[in-house]
Design a protein around this nucleic acid. Sequence first.
DNA 1: ATCGGCTCGCGCAA
DNA 2: TGCGCGAAGCCGAT
Length: 450
Amino acid sequence: MANERARQLNGAGIRSGGDYILYWSQMNRRADANQALDFAVELANERRLPVLFYEGLTYGYPYSSDRFHTFILEGVPETEKRLKARGIGYTFYLRRGPSDANDVLYRLAARAAAVVTDDYPTFIAARHNAGVAPKLDVAFFAVDASCIVPMAHFQKREYAAYTIRPKIHKLLPRYLWPLPPVEVRRPFPRRANEFHTHVTGAGIGALVASCAIDHTVRPSASIPGGRLAAEARLADFVRHGLARYAGEHNEPSARATSGLSPYLHFGRISALEAALAARACGEFLEQLIVRRELAFNFARFTPRLDSLEALPDWARETMRRHRRDRRSPVYTGEQFEHAATHDQLWNAAQRELLSSGVIHGYYRMYWGKKIIEWSPDYEQALRTMIYLHERYALDGRDPNTYTNILWCFGLHDRPWPERPVFGTLRWMSLEGMRRKTDTEAYIAQWRSAP
DNA sequence: ATCGGCTCGCGCAA
DNA sequence: TGCGCGAAGCCGAT
């Protein structure tokens, strides 16, 4: 089957006599506007087979907590409802602790004719896919359902936004269209499924409490999970934020940003759907498509996203020259984590992260630049930023996360005048933030401890 | 309020 | 080989 978004990750063939095509949803956890699911449906239609959608959630991955579990579980009932309406089978398996089954994917794959999953460049899904491929004895396909312009269009790491932008704009007329509906020809038979964990909205609290995860990181105080919440957020943004986005996206108190990043990260909504709904605003498309797909491109061609090695030569050279510069003040990881610096704007940004699970994009740059300024060295600063994102951010562990963090160290940026600690890395100041944004309104909003 | 300079390197025009 | 220009910068001069 020819599809420019799909590639086979192993050498096995499609099994004749399989009961279904299995779609293993890792990153694009949605029933709608999902090219990976559609690929599975088309494969199934050709073979006169039904489709089974499998989505797992496990305990014990780094920083698994009530926050991430709640956000994911809140999406399960609606996914189930929409898949059922399309005639697609659904297995949601919640692995709560070591005594539960740990091989559900392989048991479901044993009866499948083929397995389809998401092609995704950050190390978690990428490592899953690489590890699973040789163990499956049926054809295993990875499909890029995350980017609007398929990642495969770019053969190398792009240097900056200005190098990828013209290429994306040239291709957009081909890709910025709603996906054609794909009809399921063979509905999945109704039968008991031994691995399915039934989830209702009212039961989520008890389910989360029963898992062996970090219960001290509380669910987001302001961002509900799920497809319905994602659609509501997009509709609200188009109605109330879009017209102001171009002028006020860097003014956090204006609330003119989309707030979609957690939903995009967990795949509850696709970038394509958001772009089509918000295409009237070019500045938003710049963020949603050019910036986001530059981040996917970076992740795809960078072996270690949690390292400073991938930075451009000028950035690494200027840090080498300034690594012994005196830092003052210097904070520990705990001081950063507990929002206990001398800077009330910085503390407010950290409290927004602790409480809601995101930081406004503009203040997040300031947040990151100051961690560089107030950490003992660059490597420690990087570790602090990654740790805080991976533990608390609902949009963490995304290609955007690592690209945004490394931007603070010069990635996709250019040199600026020399100064202590930063060398020629761009510097940001509290005065600049005060001049350009309403810092007092933001500090007041996030004043109290979460 | 607005503007140029700071500084590097990519990619295109020539 | 030369040249324009780049994710949100700052700073000093006007």
